[in-house]
Design a protein around this nucleic acid. Structure first.
Lengths: 116, 116
DNA sequence: CTGTATCCTTGGCGATACTG
DNA sequence: CAGTATCGCCAAGGATACAG
């Protein structure tokens, strides 16, 4: 008679690094924003075009939160008309490998089956 | 009088690989569920204990969706009282590297600063 | 133990209009 | 161009009660 196994899954993270990170990625458009910033800075309207269907309000809110979280930086260019450039910070860059892993799985899924 | 209609025109989101994969991971507890299943099967109440604070309704809903998506399988054991085991499918296993990448960033964040 | 049914609150997000 | 303000819908999710 085997006693009830104590499947304490390895070292269950106390306050969950997973949750810690997912708080940064939370929100419908957040991963996509970071994805489009992964190689070069983008302007507000460029991002709005990249993320087909996002509202200005939501994009603005996400960008401000990501800035507060230290994931990206905002720079106003003294041009006319004014333009604003967003770019990943060092911290933001650390998130890219995780997003790449997600994108990679997405590719696998598309090959495996026609996903809706 | 018919109040003016609130143009309910859901914009079809672009289906990039990132979005494709995030649909599987969408939902507050989903990544954590997969994380706790990564090494061994777990029962309903075990998962409920792992995910401190999740309601039975939500956990049930997430598990059913993940089952429909082919990410995990559900097996009813003919014991008394009945127990149910959930385990990752092959497809579910493919998601683990992505989640590990997220967990890894979470660890980095915790080292870098005290994250709320 | 393993869920499902019902009710209710919260907030995420789009749409629209307006500002610098 | 780059946002902010306001409105309102709707779905995610907790609480609770109930069922097999």
């Amino acid at each position: 008679m085997v006693p009830r196994r104590k499947t304490r899954v390895a070292a269950p993270p106390p306050v969950c690094p997973l949750t810690t990170c997912m708080r940064l990625l939370g929100g419908a458009w957040t991963p996509n924003i970071l994805w489009y910033l992964r190689e070069s800075p983008r302007r507000f309207s460029e991002l709005k075009g990249d993320l087909q269907g996002v509202s200005a309000k939501t994009l603005s809110a996400r960008l401000r939160k990501l800035e507060r979280d230290g994931v990206l930086s905002r720079e106003v260019k003294p041009t006319s008309p004014p333009t604003v450039e967003y770019r990943l910070t060092t911290l933001g860059g650390r998130l890219i490998p995780a997003i790449e892993a997600i994108v990679d799985v997405g590719h696998q899924l598309k090959r495996l089956r026609a996903v809706r």
